[in-house]
Simulated scan of single mutants.
Amino acid sequence: MDRLIRGYAGSQGHKVSVETMAEAESAEQDSAAATPRIEHQPLESGPGLARLQGDWSLLPLRGNFETLSAQAAGLWREGTAWDLRSLRRLDNAGAMMLWDAWGQRLPAQIDWLPEHQAMFAKLDLPKLPVPRRGRMPAGVTAFGRDLLLMAEHLVGATRLLGQLAIDCWQMLRRPGLISWRDISINIYRTGAQAMGITALVGFLVGVTLSYLTSRQLRLFGADIYVINILGLSVWRELGPLLAAILVAGRSGSAMTAQLGVMRVTQELDALSVMGISHTIRLVLPKIFALGVAMPLVALWTSCMVLAGGMVAARATLGLDYVQFLQGIPAAVPEANLWLGLGKAHVFGLLIAFVACHFGLRIKPNSESLAIGTTSSVVSSITVVIIADAAFAIIFQGLGI
């Protein structure tokens, strides 16, 4: 019995070893057949026939790339005919190697399969003409590119302005569309929360302006006129402009960043899917809120500038606080106060409009968010200064 079992086990082990050897031989034959190679068959008439064998893909070619490339280039220069029908596999790496060896054009005689023809058709692309360098300097080209970008922004801003006009008409017909809560929140964020930074900057600017002015007036014995200079310049020009620049850097950038983050997180797309208008829900509340808050912020900033100027005038010229406060209403007409508040209202509308315009143009990536926020702040301040210059020209023409 034991001899029978040992004989059976031995026969089974021999059978397994035979099968393993057969598999190894088969794998070795497959590996040999997959090796990329070129078989050159001389012909009685002509330079001969080059038949490609094996697997012409990236991994099998990496050890024989230079050898096969040189061999293929030599056969191609002799005018050899080519046969690709026996290839086991051909990928982009093998096709590109043959294409370069053939001088980037097909041989006169070639036999191949349809899939090979499609692969080489992608490589047989017409040579694109090398663009000639423009005669214009690089600065002129960059200036033209900036003009085109400005025109694109103007078109987008005009489109947004038209949409806002349509939405305002709809809100007048349907007052329920007005989001009073969003308007209130934006008034608090752009107005009340901006009082600290505007007060600090305004006070320091007032101290600096009063100190420099008083030094010049003391030379001519006109110390008392520091009240006239500070009052007229602050209420009409400096206060609204300083407040607008601070709000543009603080609140305008926040509006752009908020809309940009909503674009990155696809919240704007979700609002569109739900049928909610971006301008009614997001843009108009910000514009209305900043249009209301900006005159109040400008008034607060002007008061802080005058407070700083009053402290500096007391320290440098010895002017009494009561004298300073009583001299401002006499030196500054009431119309200048309303002109300053009206300019501040327009500045607020412009800042919010520019901030929302850039916020809606942001693409869903972090780089666009950073560039859009920076461009929004710069553009807002630029628009405010241009508007202030336009007001100065208009008031000068009207004699105000």
Rank of each mutant, 00 (worst) to 15 (best):
I197Y: 05
F347G: 02
S368V: 00
K122G: 15
L219G: 08
A27E: 12
L98Y: 05
G399A: 11
R263F: 00
L123K: 04
E367N: 07
R105V: 09
V322W: 11
A330I: 01
L128Y: 05
G231K: 10
G318Y: 09
M119K: 04
G156F: 12
S210G: 15
L147S: 10
R89L: 05
L282I: 01
G202F: 05
L209E: 11
W76L: 11
Q12Y: 09
L177P: 02
A270C: 01
G249F: 00
S17W: 10
F143C: 08
G399R: 15
W76I: 06
D320F: 00
L217W: 02
P107Q: 09
R77S: 13
T279C: 02
C303L: 15
G239A: 05
L49K: 10
E23C: 04
T316H: 12
T190D: 08
Q323G: 14
G191F: 01
M310T: 08
W99Q: 09
V297W: 04
A344L: 01
S253A: 13
G342K: 03
V332L: 11
A313C: 11
T67N: 10
P129Y: 08
K127H: 06
P36R: 12
L75D: 10
A81K: 06
W235L: 15
K127L: 07
G291E: 01
L52A: 06
P42G: 06
Y225Q: 13
A370I: 08
E115R: 14
E19L: 12
A32G: 02
K127Y: 00
L259H: 08
S11L: 10
A254M: 08
A142M: 09
E334N: 07
T80N: 09
M274H: 09
T198R: 08
I5L: 10
K122W: 13
Q117T: 11
Y188F: 11
L369Y: 00
L154C: 13
G10S: 09
R314T: 03
P36M: 06
G348N: 07
L306Y: 06
F65E: 12
N64K: 10
H357R: 05
K363R: 14
G359L: 04
I197M: 08
R105G: 03
V264Y: 05
V155F: 08
L350C: 09
L160P: 11
L337G: 05
G7D: 10
G176M: 06
P333M: 10
G359N: 06
I185N: 14
D111Y: 06
R133V: 14
W102N: 02
E25R: 13
Q170E: 15
P47S: 15
L128Q: 15
L284R: 03
T208G: 12
F203L: 15
R3G: 10
V201F: 03
V205L: 15
G397T: 07
F395S: 09
V346P: 00
A101Q: 09
G348R: 08
R215C: 05
P36F: 05
G275A: 04
I227Y: 02
M21W: 03
A244P: 01
S302W: 02
V130W: 04
L306M: 12
M1I: 11
S302H: 03
V261N: 14
R250L: 09
F120T: 07
E39H: 13
P295V: 03
